[in-house]
Design a protein around this nucleic acid. Structure first.
Length: 821
DNA sequence: ACGTCCCGCCAGGGG
DNA sequence: CCCCTGGCGGGACGT
């Protein structure tokens, strides 16, 4: 033992003198005394050591120490307490948690401003930090390393770092996302998932890993640290060697989030990917374990940064730890921000290797800038208002903003907002609307009363393919609400305004709802079959947590004026069938018709087909298509690719043609059909069962009144044999589940005997409530049709051709829940 | 029993 | 050569 000596020395002295029988070292059990955030005393180490002793000794020690040490009131207090209740004492001792890296990180971060004034750089002296925080140096390295990976700090020299705060975060994330895309993490994730399933099926086949591993190895980006222009890695020396593991790992970890559509990454998957990348998958158990351990470290600090949070993914196999991205939305921005990736290996700079979506976008929209906004009037307003703010901010006398490298044009003040706005254009145009969606949500937040009401005006957007319903499709997010009593989980799609976090989910089974149908209370009552879903969990709110703070304030009310979803609505409203809703209503016992509701979402399992991924876009000539096809909404985890917004406006499906109804179904889902049946057969339980999608869809349509009761549609040709006659065959029941609180939310559910899932639909009152963190989220899991032939080869495709191939064909198979901790 | 992850040994390498 | 860095994994703690 060397390093620790200097600190330990004194304590050891004290310790020994009082406690000869002290044992060597194991993880020192808790120590005494509540650790006030800051008031660490020089004796803290001593305390630690003491704590190693038995409780009695410890307490005795405590008392003694108390008497002679003029330490602090806290201790005194402590002791007195302890005199009374020995147990209580135990509790007050810092538990393991209180020494967690996460907490430490918090302390660390508390020392520096999130957005330090660019003028005055704050430096970090490890020695100081170490001392003040009373931690081993080693721990600080962990923190600093991941901060470094995010360019929140950069190393100057030994023992010395500069604090950048979150200024660079947007750029960093952007860069990471880009690299992540280039690394084809999506595919890798899918691959891993798939392998998992295959294992389930025949556990014997251990060796067919090579496939994946080979593909993994083909990945040329090994150990590269993504840098930003302004924040080069100093100490080239350090940079040059292997001492980057944690940093790189951290970056990659983040990349996984940014690239995934449900921005959830399980540790397991992350670890596998991180391992698989360098080593060709030597399924080394210990290595895996170690990786996981590291990931926990990283995750802890990322959590402290509020970039991610822990959740649990529950699937049939059990509960797996995972993390969910809670950081800022990342925009595939094109800003001329060039990133460079320095690599330790022989890999070339990643940045220029692949002309990605960026180029595609550029090609598509050569005139980057506001013009892009012209497509969406609401966006224009938004932009203007933002720009306004921006100007104000910049011209503010107090903020002579001047960023060193000048590489970053983004405003230091409200990076989030600003960062988002360029995104909107592209995102939207690319069929991604997350940003916009988020905006919407924020708006809703800032002014809850102002409810986006459907208003029948004419739709300019109709003529414009991309502008029509940008956000709507993604606005439906499935959430699973575990039902305490029944043990069943319910899937629910929430309106974005209801659940911010879920909005990023792009359900594999998606159906374009009528976003803002103005319904009057709808309720069904066969509640016997279905348990009523209580959404009590909603109240486990995160409260004033994240989004509210700076965001709401900056948002402009105008934005909400015309949401794309409303437009969609208009279309749908124009349809005669629409009043079927009312008919339906009469069928069911009406309830509380005074309230105005709009469907918050539907959840319908539709099969989807993954089409070309970003990676496939690598070819320049495909640029245009590429951006349209961008699969931002694809779920790497599930392998599902919801349709891009560009496809939303029309429904042109052979077997399922309901265009006028504004039901949006990805054309791709049809392509999936053939294979679908295949996988159906392969799959265990659902083998001969008809595809739930169509029946579910039918049900839904009818239920909602989009489809005449008698009519049935088949979601896909292959499944047409599905008993159309009575939906009850597959969809056993629907029921109205009452809504709990304040009767403001009406939910109804239906049960699909096919996949044994219960879907819950809810109609939310117009006035959006405070967005709630969903407890759980469902997501379909898809399995590829087994067989080596159908095995999607993720590696190939060098030609950059669009591959709307089998790899996309999955079958909804299982449920996955993500739950908060 | 398992998920988390603290703790600190010790190898590398910079100064 | 000292000591900063940081990979790494045992095993403690929490549930």
């Amino acid at each position: 033992l060397k390093t620790p000596l200097k600190q330990t020395a004194t304590s050891q002295l004290v310790l020994t003198e009082r406690q000869p029988d002290c044992q060597p070292l194991t993880t020192p059990p808790k120590l005494k005394e509540t650790p006030p955030a800051d008031p660490w005393t020089p004796t803290s180490n001593l305390k630690m050591l003491i704590s190693a002793a038995s409780p009695e000794i410890r307490s005795r020690e405590q008392r003694r120490q108390l008497s002679d040490s003029s330490n602090e009131v806290l201790q005194t207090k402590h002791c007195s307490q302890e005199d009374l209740l020995g147990d209580e004492y135990e509790k007050s001792q810092p538990s393991r948690k209180e020494k967690s890296l996460g907490l430490l990180c918090h302390k660390f971060l508390a020392r520096y401003p999130d957005y330090p004034s660019p003028s005055q750089k704050s430096y970090i002296c490890l020695d100081e930090v170490t001392e003040e925080l009373h931690v081993e140096r080693r721990r600080i390295y962990d923190i600093v390393n991941v901060l470094e990976s995010l360019h929140m700090v950069s190393r100057l020299a030994r023992n010395r770092y500069v604090w950048h705060g979150r200024h660079n975060l947007p750029q960093t994330l952007q860069a990471l996302k880009k690299v992540g895309e280039e690394n084809k993490y999506i595919q890798q994730i899918q691959m891993i998932k798939k392998r998992e399933y295959e294992h389930e099926f025949d556990p014997d086949s251990e060796r067919n890993e090579e496939m994946a591993s080979s593909f993994g190895s083909s990945d040329q980006s090994e150990m590269s640290f993504v840098e930003l222009p302004g924040v080069e890695f100093h100490a080239a020396s350090v940079n040059g060697r292997k001492y980057k593991s944690l940093r790189v790992m951290s970056q990659k970890f983040v990349m996984l989030f940014l690239v995934s559509t449900p921005q959830i990454v399980s540790l397991e998957v992350a670890a596998k990917i991180l391992i698989g990348e360098d080593q060709l998958e030597d399924l080394d158990k210990s290595k895996f374990k170690t990786k996981i351990r590291r990931l926990y470290d990283i995750a802890n600090v990322l959590s402290s940064l509020k970039l991610i949070k822990k959740v649990h993914v529950t699937e049939e196999r059990g509960r797996k730890p995972a993390f969910k991205w809670t950081g800022p939305e990342v925009l595939p921005n094109t800003q001329d921000t060039k990133l460079e990736a320095t690599s330790t290996t022989s890999s070339p700079p990643v940045s220029e290797s692949i002309p990605s979506k960026e180029q595609c976008s550029k090609a598509l929209f050569p005139s980057k800038g506001k013009q892009n906004f012209t497509r969406h009037s609401s966006l224009i307003k938004l932009v203007k208002s933002i720009e306004n703010d921006r100007r104000k901010i910049q011209s503010a006398p107090t903020s002579p903003v001047k960023i060193s490298a000048s590489t970053y044009q983004s405003l230091p003040v409200f990076p989030n907002t600003i960062a988002q706005f360029p995104a909107i254009t592209k995102h939207q145009l690319e069929g991604q609307s997350k940003a916009a969606e988020e905006m919407q949500m924020k708006c809703a937040l800032s002014s809850p009363e102002a409810v986006p009401k459907p208003e029948p005006s004419q739709q300019p957007g109709l003529s414009q393919p991309l502008g029509v319903c940008p956000a709507s499709h993604s606005s439906m997010s499935p959430v699973i609400l575990p039902h305490p009593q029944s043990g069943v989980s319910y899937a629910i799609c929430l309106h974005p305004s209801q659940a911010h976090t879920v909005t990023t989910y792009s359900p594999g089974f998606m159906l374009q709802p009528l976003p803002c149908a103005n319904l009057t209370g709808i309720k069904s009552n066969n509640s016997k079959v279905l348990n009523k879903i209580t959404t009590e969990e909603r109240d486990t709110q995160k409260g004033p947590d994240e989004p509210t703070k700076s965001l709401a304030a900056e948002e402009r009310p105008e934005t909400k004026s015309e949401t794309s979803s409303q437009r969609c609505l208009k279309r749908s409203q124009a349809l005669p069938e629409n009043n079927l809703i009312k008919r339906h209503k009469s069928d069911e016992e009406s309830l509380d018709s005074s309230l105005t509701f709009f469907p918050s979402g539907y959840l319908i399992p539709l099969t989807h087909c993954t089409h070309g991924n970003k990676a496939e876009c690598s070819n320049k000539e495909k640029a245009g298509v590429c951006s349209l096809q961008h699969t931002t909404y694809s779920s790497p985890i599930t392998g599902v690719v919801p349709m891009p917004a560009s496809e939303l406006k029309t429904v042109n499906i052979p077997a399922f043609h309901i265009t006028p109804l504004n039901i949006m179904v990805s054309p791709n889902s049809i392509a999936a059909a053939p294979v679908l049946s295949n996988s159906c057969l392969n799959s265990s339980s659902t083998s001969s069962a008809p595809n739930p999608s169509s029946s579910a869809l039918n049900f839904m349509l009818q239920h909602i009144g989009l489809l005449p009761a008698g009519v049935q549609v088949a979601a896909n040709p292959v499944l047409q044999h599905v008993p159309v006659s009575s939906q009850s065959e597959n969809i056993s029941h629907s029921s109205g589940s009452t809504n709990v609180q304040e009767g403001k939310v009406i939910e109804f559910t239906f049960y699909s005997s096919i996949n044994e899932s219960i879907f819950l639909f809810s109609l939310q009152p117009s006035a959006p409530k405070e967005p709630q963190e969903p407890q759980t989220v469902t997501e379909n899991f898809f399995r590829t049709p087994g067989g080596p032939n159908t095995e999607p080869s993720l590696s190939a495709n060098s030609d950059g051709t669009q591959r709307t191939s089998q790899e996309a064909l999955y079958i909804p198979q299982r449920k996955l829940e993500v739950s908060e901790d």
